[in-house]
Amino acid sequence: MRKKLLFIFYIVSAVFVCVHLGLRVNHLTQLEASNTPLFVATYSEHSTSSKVPVNDAINYKEWAEKFEEQTK
């Protein structure tokens, strides 16, 4: 009975550990591919502070358009 319990424990633990490691690999790969900071906090005058989603840290399209206009 105890041997069976240890066997079940082994299998369940192995599954959880593998899922945990898989998710970690996925997370780190995505983070590297996005090439963005892990976390960004930005000051806003309207509130004491505000968190900015990493991908919205700067609007690149808007910046590029502005840059092109000014360098024409």
């Binding site: 105890r2 319990l5 240890l6 424990f9 082994y10 369940v12 633990s13 192995a14 959880f16 550990v17 945990h20």
Partner: peptide, 20 residues
């Protein structure tokens, strides 16, 4: 994983040490 290790430890001696 921690929860099931704690529960199994009450029946089998050192389950984590004997497995992973």
């Amino acid at each position: 994983l921690t929860t099931i290790t704690i529960v199994t430890s009450l029946v089998v001696k050192r389950p984590w040490c004997r497995t992973l």
